[in-house]
Design a binder for these strands. Structure first.
Length: 821
RNA sequence: GCCGGGGUGGCGAAAUCGGUAGACGCACGAGACUUAAAAUCUUGUGGGGGAAACCCCAUGCGGGUUCGAUCCCCGCCCCCGGCACCA
């Protein structure tokens, strides 16, 4: 090192180390290495626009964490792949008039280039591409495992249909009655669809949330989605065949009657149930409807089943029709009318409710609209028991039962229990738990996805494609545009869909639907370690070593879709004896999102950041560190062009510290102490993903290091280079090499924290008078209270506030002294 | 409506088993270097008052607990995200 200080040239340094890492295999993981650590990040959809700065933000956080784990002595596996099937790609291909089989490889190549440029420690030998037959062969295999276990089934179902994308959508993909992709109002259509029985797993999917180490926001979203509610099913008997209101004096039990089961979370309010409501599609409706009401009821049913979901969900106006029938309220023993209305959903609970207008807003609205009786059966403390209700009373914390016979005076909770117990004794009620989670509709009438591996034979019926015959390859279709028919474009290619029946060999017909993209991504983490194996989906030994995933990082936009499906598929494979764990991700952290100028980045806002531009101008290391510095990783932040210079300045200062470094002296005590504190801080912050404060701590250290005219010593800068390495890997490698090291800095051990070197003998003890800080005194760290007090009183600036005798002295050793007067 | 997360300088943000509020960075001001500018270095910067030493106010709003509250409790307001005619 001569007098000339070499200039930090990011472009040259980064180019050099990309090549070097490749040549040396620095990022190639030894899957048999010690202390395996699987650091997974959500794989991207390779869009034509290229890598988004938001992707880079997400990946960089994971990369820092992974590199840190490696320097802690772990063998770290940090794979990345491409989620390239799906409507997004297909629509883009349609728009551009390019076939997806051409488009996707092009996009992937561009992504790969940008990702490598970002300096990620990814082992590309273990990548996946969901559109590769070598991958989707196993996606089809996963489907067959569910089929075999009775967890995949086909049924005619009212499904969400997007008229723009011309496809079925899962409930998860319908936001406020509209398609999450294009915003078009969703219609209801009845089609034959494939479903997975995820609802059967609802209790486990919910319960496990109590012990997995995930972001609270994500767990809350899943809990909301699964939607558990505790309550009771109560039986109401409805006498049949009468065209007149039954005589209450008549013995209802002797009449032929229908059992109407309702679900309620408020059995305590049963004395206030003044009518029943069935969903229009409820199967008992034809049986109970009286002759006189038949025309009105049929008209209403016809209308509401045709009605699309939007009208039904967005306009909350209450409509309904009286069936003419009555049911016996098993608690109050009175006859109450039975109505049908579309505010009661067939898909949830029993498709029937007991309406308690006094204590439920919806029932209140309905009762008001149709002039049905509103009875109060819960009253608040000190409230007149029979005070009329202008609005439904829903305070179930303080409420007490009234007008409820023997149950009067009980709390909501006790009342519920006692009433259910009493009804249960005569078989009229059962305690039940309901979930809002519906089965997962996985079929899509589109082109760009894995064909569902099933064949229909006139003789043998539905036959699963044998595993040995997988993959069922997606044929090349010139015209893959979807149409309104509700049938997949694959149904146009007879040469493809006519196939021999696997059982009898006679010509049969392939399933022409493809599966949902979310199935591709529900198991990809199992594939990464085993990409070398083409005979199994996942190698048992490798899976035992590497899974479950140690750390998973991704966006919260996948909190309910991808994460829930992945957990479900894992549980199924666990139950099938193929995995020895049932939760795929031990730890999950949701990262935040990068916005710019206070708005989400989008082409319409014109505020999209192309990472290439910033890597050209500042270097990848600077961009990485800046993204991590601009805000808390789990909250995201605002990308501001102006602020990036501060991070570059910091790296410049690290660079010149190394360039000027000397080997001929002792490290300075204050610098050493600060260094130790920084080692501790950075080592604590990285596992917490608190990257912004870790960078701030390193900046503080560099400020101390560069203070004054002195030349830094090796022992002062060498650990610094290791600390910055996860954040700025290229420049750290370069500096590490310039300091004389041959091996990669990532094969060095993270600097050890030495508490003795970090400790200081003296400190500035804050002194408060009456709780207000009035100054500090320089005292030994382990000073006793009396000495601290004496020191404070010896400081005029503090003593002058002590105007009388102290009544109390609060002393927290090492923290503060408070003199109370 | 229910469930999460959040509200701190001009800006991005630190600090929560209760203990000097505003670390670090941006921007801005002053100075050094320079013919000059850029870069770099030094230094200042929450608001108000004061010549100054200093004083007062301040973590969305209003109360409370405490020697001491950004942090805990009660009652509100606002922003972001999830769920939503789910009984």
């Amino acid at each position: 090192m001569a007098d000339e200080i070499p200039v930090y040239d990011p472009a040259a340094v980064e180019q050099k180390w990309r090549t070097r890492w490749h040549e040396r295999g620095t990022n190639s993981v030894d899957l048999a290495g010690p202390r395996p650590y699987y650091a997974l990040m959500m794989f991207p959809y390779p869009s034509a626009e290229g890598l988004h700065v938001g992707n880079l933000f997400a990946f960089t956080g994971n990369d820092i964490f992974a590199r840190f784990q490696r320097m802690q002595g772990h063998t770290v596996f940090e794979p990345l792949g491409y989620d390239a099937f799906g409507i997004h790609s297909e629509n883009y291909a349609l728009k551009m008039g390019v076939h997806p089989t051409e488009l996707i490889p092009r996009n992937i190549a561009n992504f790969r280039r940008q990702l490598e440029r970002g300096g990620l420690m990814v082992d590309w030998r273990h990548s996946v591409d969901t559109t590769d037959p070598a991958y989707y062969k196993w996606t089809q295999w996963v489907f067959l495992q569910l089929l075999r276990r009775g967890l995949a089934y086909k049924k005619k179902a009212a499904v969400n249909w997007c008229p723009t994308d011309k496809t079925v959508l899962a409930n998860e993909q319908v936001i406020a009655g509209a398609c999450e992709r294009c915003g078009t109002p969703v219609e209801q259509r009845t089609l034959e669809q494939w479903f997975f029985r995820i609802s059967e797993y609802a209790p486990r999917l919910l319960e496990n949330l109590s012990w997995i180490d995930w972001s609270e926001t994500t767990k809350a979203a899943q809990r909301n989605w699964i939607g558990r509610s505790e309550g009771a099913e109560i039986v109401f008997l409805a006498p049949l065949g009468g065209d007149r209101p039954p005589d209450p004096n008549e013995n209802a039990a002797v009449l032929d009657s229908a059992e109407i089961r309702v679900f309620t979370t408020r059995p305590d309010t049963i004395f206030g149930a003044t009518y029943l409501v069935l969903a229009p599609e409820h199967p008992l409706v034809p049986a109970i409807t009286t002759t006189g009401q038949r025309p009105a009821v049929s008209a209403y049913r016809a209308r509401s089943t045709k009605q699309d979901l939007v009208t039904r969900r967005v306009s909350r106006e209450k409509t309904g029709v009286f069936t003419g029938a009555y049911a016996l309220n098993p608690a109050s023993n009175t006859l109450i009318p039975i109505w049908i209305a579309d505010y009661v959903l067939m898909e949830y609970g029993t498709g029937a409710i007991m309406a308690v207008p006094g204590h439920d807003e919806r029932d209140f609205e309905f009762a008001t609209a149709f002039g049905l009786p509103i009875v109060r059966v819960v009253a608040g403390d000190g409230e007149e028991a029979h005070s009329p209700l202008a609005v439904p009373f829903t305070d179930n914390e303080n409420g007490r039962l009234v007008s409820s016979g023997e149950f009067d005076g009980l709390s909501v909770r006790d009342g519920s229990q006692r009433i259910v117990a009493k009804l249960a004794a005569r078989g009229a009620a059962t305690v039940v738990v309901n979930y809002r989670l519906y089965d997962w509709c996985i079929s899509r009438q589109r082109y760009w996805g894995p064909p569902i591996p099933v064949v229909y034979c006139d003789l043998c019926g539905m036959v699963a494609v044998p595993e040995a015959d997988l993959p069922v390859r997606l044929p090349y279709l010139e015209n893959f545009k979807p149409d309104d028919s509700g049938v997949s474009p694959l149904a146009r290619d007879e040469s493809w869909y006519i196939a021999p029946c696997p059982e009898c060999g006679k010509p049969a017909r392939r399933e022409t639907d493809v599966s949902d993209t979310f199935l591709d991504s529900a198991w990809y983490f199992l594939r990464y370690p085993s990409t070398d194996r083409d005979d199994v989906a996942f190698d048992p030994a490798l899976t035992k070593t590497w899974l479950p995933v140690d750390s998973y990082i991704g966006g919260n936009e996948h909190a309910v879709l991808h994460l829930l499906y992945s957990r479900f598929i894992t549980m199924v494979l666990h139950d099938a004896g193929m995995l020895d764990f049932e939760e795929p991700f031990q730890r999950f952290r949701a990262h935040g999102h990068i916005i710019r100028d206070g708005a989400k980045m989008s082409k319409t806002h014109g505020n999209v950041v192309n990472p290439d531009v910033y890597m050209d101008q500042w270097g990848a290391d600077t961009l990485r560190a800046y993204l991590m510095f601009l805000g808390p990783y789990q909250e995201g932040g605002d990308f501001r062009d102006q602020s990036i210079s501060g991070v570059r300045r910091f790296l410049d200062r690290v660079w010149s510290s190394v360039a000027q470094m000397r080997d001929d002296g002792e490290p300075q005590e204050e610098v050493t102490r600060k260094l130790q504190q920084t080692i501790r801080k950075v080592g604590e912050d990285i596992p917490r993903l608190s990257f912004n404060t870790a960078i701030a701590a390193m900046m503080e250290y560099v400020n101390v290091l560069r203070r004054g005219e002195r030349t830094p010593q090796r022992a002062e800068v060498e650990p610094l280079v290791q600390l910055i390495a996860p954040f700025a890997p290229h420049v750290a490698e370069e500096l590490w090499e310039r300091m004389g090291h041959v091996a990669s800095v990532f094969d060095s051990s993270w600097p050890a924290f030495d508490a003795r070197l970090a400790a200081e003998d003296t400190m500035d003890l804050p002194v408060q008078v009456r709780g207000k800080t009035r100054g500090t005194v320089r005292v030994p760290r382990d000073i006793a209270q009396a000495d601290a007090y004496a020191a404070a009183m010896a400081t005029p600036a503090i003593a002058k506030f002590v105007t009388g005798e102290p009544t109390k002295i609060v002393f927290v050793p090492g923290r503060l002294l408070n003199i109370v007067l």
